[in-house]
């Protein structure tokens, strides 16, 4: 009964929405020209990065807060050890992981640098870093994490703190996150570098704090 009602409502919704979207005329406002016009003053050359870290950088600041928050939620919920034993690992797999991890770090640095003028940036770089940590963990080379000690806590929140500090210091310039055009590029690079490390740790943490096997405190 519930199934039929929900599926029926979903189908009706799809039909109504498709019809409405099909009739839609052109939008009243086009932001593309103003993005293009202000790109030179944004400190980066890639329009998406300019929107993410300059025009709408405030969204990105809160987004990092959301990610940190998810990690806090996982830590707060707590986790119990189930079965600690991990089977023996294939040495070939471990060797490949050992080779891959440093290469992935290099890829992350490239992605961070490339973000200024082509698709890439801190999040992508952080994701690759996190993936390398997950890879090392899954091949048995790195233990799972428990409650973070002070160094890891700094690492997890450092990127967000740098971002927040830059945002607040720029209040002297007259506005939250109002970069002076001359220094916008350098400040964005600073923020992105901090974010890459913290995002890598947070994303890795989302996996490794949940991981079961017996690891020490980290």
């Amino acid at each position: 009964m519930k199934r039929i009602a929900v599926v029926g409502a979903a189908l009706a919704f799809i039909v109504a929405l498709l019809a409405a979207m099909g009739d839609l005329g052109p939008a009243a406002i086009d932001l593309r020209p103003s993005v293009a016009a202000n790109l030179a003053a944004s400190g980066v050359e890639h329009p998406v990065t300019a929107v993410l870290l300059n025009f709408r950088a405030y969204d990105t600041l809160l987004e990092i807060a959301v990610l940190l928050l998810a990690l806090l939620g996982i830590l707060a919920v707590g986790n119990q050890r189930e079965s600690g034993a991990v089977g023996p690992m294939d040495p070939l797999l471990q060797m490949l992981a050992r080779i891959a991890a440093p290469l992935m770090a290099i890829v992350a640095i490239y992605l961070l640098w490339a973000g200024a003028f082509r698709p890439g940036g801190a999040f992508q770089a952080g994701a690759v870093l996190a993936a390398s940590a997950v890879l090392l963990h899954l091949t048995g080379l790195m233990p799972g994490w428990r409650q973070p000690r002070v160094r890891l806590r700094w690492g997890l929140s450092g990127g967000f703190l740098v971002f927040l500090a830059v945002a607040a210091v720029l209040l002297i310039e007259g506005g939250l996150l109002r970069y002076p055009p001359a220094h916008a590029g350098a400040l964005i690079l600073l923020i992105e570098s901090g974010l890459t490390i913290s995002l890598g740790l947070i994303l890795a943490g989302l996996f490794l704090f949940l991981s079961d096997d017996d690891g020490g405190e980290s």
């Binding site: 932001l31 202000n38 025009f55 709408r56």
Partner: peptide, 12 residues
Amino acid sequence: HAIGGWGAPLGI
């Protein structure tokens, strides 16, 4: 307060 100094609709 126009964040980033851009002002809507480009900024927030």
